[in-house]
Amino acid sequence: MDFIKTTEQDSLYNNLEQQSAMELLQNINQEDQKVALAVQKALPQIEALVNIIASKLKQGGRLFYMGAGTSGRLGILDASECPPTFGVHHDLVIGLIAGGDTAIRKAVENAEDNTLQGWKDLQAYHIQNNDVVIGIAASGTTPYVIAALEKCKQHQIATGCITMNAQSPLHQTADYPVVVTVGPEFITGSSRMKAGTAQKMVLNMISTSTMILLGKVKGNKMVDMQLSNEKLIDRGTKMLVKEAQLPYNQAKKLLLQHGSVRNVLTFLNYETK
């Protein structure tokens, strides 16, 4: 390899086992504070990726996240939050992990080294030209992810990536790469830490910004969120109380009747400020 894996470099801290709990916490926190600044430097790359995703989804496409281990789990987490938060179909944002659903909870041996399975996993969803596939890998070298993106490019499917290593194979493969250089981990090589935090931040930005561009937010409110529990029903009711100046009980009745804040506001012919 002709690039340096910053995620594998020695920790800036040593003799960790000799540190007190407070020293450990302070040092971890000090490293974590570097993550947001590293993400900030990647904003132009994230913008380019968000714009292509929004464009493709407006054309009927879908968004796929692919990763192994922590990276795969974070993609699945972000994908799973889109339907309840924004009221979109479960098949709009899809998270795939090397080793399948079993790997969400337990590591599946050698799954990330399989260069054929990633494309098979995408084919199971009838991947097509309007879709976008984002490979997530802190190292930038995960075979499961890279091989799948290479296949996507052969089929003119837009690809992006989230990696922590510049000039890695994944960086060089993706059409719209996002590289967040967070530096060495607190525990050498433990990329579930700063790298994982950076991935989570970027995924939050991608899905949230995309959904706003798709019109799934009005003002600053989640007007299409699913009413799947009492907390969300109460939140939706209070939105209506504030936006439409309705009594709480009337707002709740209308919300349950029409199924979403947006539907109630449409019924009332009311625009959020």
Rank of each mutant, 00 (worst) to 15 (best):
D2R: 13
D2Q: 10
F3M: 08
F3R: 04
F3S: 02
D10A: 14
S11E: 02
N15A: 05
E17C: 07
E17Y: 15
Q18L: 08
Q19G: 00
Q30L: 04
A38N: 07
K41E: 13
I46H: 01
L49H: 00
V50K: 05
A54R: 02
A54M: 07
M66H: 13
G67S: 08
T70Y: 06
S80P: 04
V88S: 08
H89W: 08
H89G: 12
H90C: 08
V93C: 14
V93I: 12
G95M: 12
L96A: 09
A98N: 03
A103Q: 13
K106E: 14
V108Y: 12
V108A: 10
N110A: 13
A111F: 14
D113K: 11
Q117T: 02
K120T: 02
L122I: 11
A124S: 12
N129C: 13
V133W: 14
I134N: 00
I136S: 00
T141L: 10
V145N: 05
A158Y: 15
T159G: 05
T159L: 06
M164F: 11
H171E: 05
H171Q: 09
Q172Y: 14
D175G: 04
T181D: 13
G183L: 12
G183Y: 15
I187E: 08
S190T: 03
S191P: 02
R192W: 07
K194Y: 07
A195V: 04
G196F: 12
A198S: 10
K200P: 01
V202M: 03
V202W: 02
S207I: 05
T210H: 15
L213T: 06
L213R: 09
V217E: 12
K221F: 10
K221W: 08
V223Q: 01
V223I: 11
S228V: 14
S228T: 15
N229T: 07
K231V: 06
K231C: 07
Q245W: 07
L246C: 01
L246K: 00
P247M: 13
N249I: 03
Q250E: 09
A251I: 02
K252T: 00
L255S: 04
Q257E: 11
G259Q: 06
V261N: 04
N263V: 01
N263I: 01
L265G: 03
F267D: 03
F267L: 09
N269L: 09
